[in-house]
Design a protein around this nucleic acid. Structure first.
Lengths: 202, 202
DNA sequence: ACAAAAGTGTTGGGCTTACACCCATGT
DNA sequence: ACATGGGTGTAAGCCCAACACTTTTGT
């Protein structure tokens, strides 16, 4: 009686593309790889990211969602992660493989997993700084707000947003300014820490 | 090149014993079983609960914590759960295997996992009704409050606690009264739902 | 000059916290 | 009668949500 199992790692890659939260779903499936023998989960996650996104570096935020066994009874185990990458980081894959997640209707098998991943992400950005992994190192408060709005799928009040973010001391003012389009230049900020950090809600 | 792995399910059993949050840790280890081939995770979780606690029924709340691969590089995978059981439900195992969790000092290998499990549990009881699985079907507000205090490891204000709990509409007043020790009899309540439910925080 | 995004304060309501005394029973 | 836990209300502070106008630039 053997007790070994095929273990598959699946990763939902999120990015913000054209101001919209999108997930990488070629053929409408969440990409996965079999965990090789004598390999650690974290290493394989890195492998899979490289394979699907065409990049070896991994500076995005990764979080494990949960593990499930195959409902068909094969005994196969799936371990699901999600990942945040800035859109300019993507070098591989068809643009059409990126699905705007708030369009999906629950009609595909894996949509429940996606919906759960979105919820987890929405919770996470409320009390951590993980959005750093969706932004370039320098950005404006407007750009940051648009990232939050894309993930939360609703508009936010500009003044309240700024008050809250600045009170959390997540950001550092560079003193520089940046002009986008034909409008007043905006103050440029960077994140104090580019590592996942729980920010005090006071 | 085979791609199969030993998958071990581990369960941290929590209970409230003498007003203290305790975990079942025989030999100071988190109990586990190897996942058998062609078996689903949930079934094996039930098995493990029966084996370790000596009961086939499982009416406790179970939640998956996360999965890790063996840091030694063996490729083994561990999937960790935690479970809430009322203390009178336990029929097997030495009383001394139940460790008061706020006594532990991080000196054992698995203490980090335990600390994380406690944190998850603390979060969970703040916005769900899962404490039902630590209580008999009928109980007083005082008993409920002592469960919360045991898990959160701090005292709570009696009046504020009652206001909050009652406003959440988790409980149903039975009209009955129950007297504990030499004191005024207390109103007896039951949970409206004995299934995990997210309660509105308004 | 005008369009477009940046920047800036105040107010009201709701929630959370802190806090002290009387009540009903068992011994 | 006294010890024990049950039961109750109010006030202050804090956080969140709503809301409108001026500023600076590009065209």
């Amino acid at each position: 009686m053997k007790k070994t199992h095929a273990v598959t790692i699946k990763i939902i890659c999120f990015t913000i593309s054209d101001g919209v939260l999108a997930a990488f779903l070629p053929n409408r499936r969440i990409p996965g790889v079999l965990l090789r023998e004598r390999h650690a989960l974290e290493d394989e996650v890195g492998e899979l990211i490289g394979k699907t996104l065409g990049s070896k570096r991994n500076n995005g935020f990764v979080e494990q969602l949960y593990s499930v066994s195959d409902p068909q009874g094969s005994g196969a185990v799936f371990i699901v992660y999600y990942l945040l990458v800035p859109s300019d980081y993507i070098t591989k894959g068809d643009t059409r493989d990126w699905i705007s997640v708030f369009d999906l209707q629950g009609s595909y098998a894996e949509d429940q997993i996606l919906l759960y991943a979105i919820q987890r992400l929405q919770w996470k950005i409320e009390y951590t700084n993980v959005v750093y992994s969706l932004l370039p190192s320098q950005f404006t408060l407007g750009e940051l707000q648009r990232v939050y709005e894309a993930i939360l799928n609703r508009t936010l009040d500009k003044r309240n947003f700024r008050k809250k973010i600045l009170s959390l001391k997540m950001l550092k003012d560079t003193g520089k300014k940046k002009t986008l389009g034909r409008a007043r230049p905006a103050e440029v900020y960077t994140f104090v820490k580019r590592k996942p950090t729980i920010v005090e809600i006071l």
